[in-house]
Amino acid sequence: MKAIFFIFFIFIYSFQARADEPNAWAGVGFESWIGKLPTQIVDGKALKLIETDGVKKITQKIVPAYEMDAINKYYVESLVSKIDNFIIINKCMPHNCPSELAMIVIDMNSPRIWVGLFLRDDTHSSTRWYSNGDDYSVLPNTIKQSFLERHGD
């Protein structure tokens, strides 16, 4: 019985770990999303790029739940784009797009993700970046500039 549990555990562990491996990452098929909206309706169901297995696993780890709740309300979306080897997803709040927004940056070559958020209201503004890799400062300048332009630079 113990042996069966052990084999089952190894099977589950290897399956879960797979999403963190570069080869599995490449299999997510990011290229196919470029030029499309990050939410696609397939057979009546919403298919979201940020909810694909590997991406969701990482964002859930690095982004606080209250920030994820906000991102999930950012229904206004731009077409998925590619800058260098990074996939870019832009989302913002309906009727308040430049003042409540998120940019999700996915490294196509390895399982690294950056999530940038911006908020502005009457009394304050804030910018937050979350990542499972290096600080956002390592991202290409074109990506950082694009984020700034989204909220008005």
């Binding site: 206004v76 979306e77 731009s78 913002c92």
Partner: peptide, 8 residues
């Protein structure tokens, strides 16, 4: 952004 689309 002219491609902006509301998913809901």
């Amino acid at each position: 952004d002219s491609d902006a689309t509301n998913s809901m």
